[in-house]
């Protein structure tokens, strides 16, 4: 006597039951008729939300600066501005390469897209390496996140941003996997591109605020 569990529709699917008759009831949406959302609408909840987190960091940082503008100025001037500038250029270049990759992918130019992505990935790694070198230099000169409020925000802002860069590198690498399999542009591909541009955009603000505005 065998126990034929495969016929038991009450078992969940992963225990051999039948696939559930599941489908989300879609509410009818009004057609906008114009414009194409990059990636998908839900992505922008994340993108705008993450940008707002950094926005909140920026607001509080500048607010804290009001209590000690001279201290902020002295500390900010200690930063390696040229490294920051190179990093800005590197990320802007990487964004350009991501745009190039996306358009190549759309047109079926898989090899060209892959090359662009390799370039963008390399830029991301260069950014990370420069940032680590910068951290070592700053820490080596005795400055820690606890030194003063400026350095707290310097380390937290650039640190959380660096985390975003590293995640972006992983996303771009996965995009290269999509290219290798010869698949067309997906929501994921466009979403990764938008994410990378967000990483670039956030750095541009961080550089301007921390390295330039605070130091003036």
């Amino acid at each position: 006597m065998t126990l034929d569990i495969s016929a038991d529709a009450d078992l969940p699917e992963f225990l051999g039951g039948a696939a559930a008759d599941s489908q989300r009831v879609r509410r009818p949406t009004s057609p906008t008729g114009e414009g194409r959302t990059p990636g998908e609408p839900g992505l922008w909840v994340f993108i705008l939300g993450d940008m707002s987190l950094f926005g909140a960091f920026f607001v509080v940082a500048l607010w804290q600066r009001r209590a000690a503008p001279a201290q902020f100025e002295v500390s900010a001037q200690e930063l390696m501005r040229s490294t920051g500038l190179i990093n800005t250029a590197v990320l802007l270049l990487s964004s350009y390469l991501v745009v190039s990759a996306l358009w190549a992918h759309r047109r079926g130019g898989m090899r060209r897209a892959t090359l662009s992505l390799v370039g963008a990935l390399a830029c991301g790694l260069v950014f990370a390496a420069l940032k680590v070198a910068e951290y070592l230099h700053v820490l080596g000169s005795g400055r820690t996140p606890a030194t003063d409020m400026f350095y707290t925000f310097y380390f937290v802002l650039t640190g959380v941003h660096l985390l975003h860069v590293l995640i972006g590198v992983v996303l771009l690498a996965a995009w290269m996997g999509v290219l290798r399999n010869g698949r067309a542009v997906t929501r994921y591909v466009e979403g990764s591109a938008v994410y990378w541009h967000m990483v670039d955009l956030l750095w541009v603000v961080i550089f301007t605020l921390l390295y330039l505005v605070c130091a003036a």
Binding site: T32, G35, R36, S95, D200, V204
Partner: peptide, 13 residues
Amino acid sequence: IGSEFMEVRTAPR
């Protein structure tokens, strides 16, 4: 960057 790279320019209003 948002408008041109992220393609917000051609996104819904």
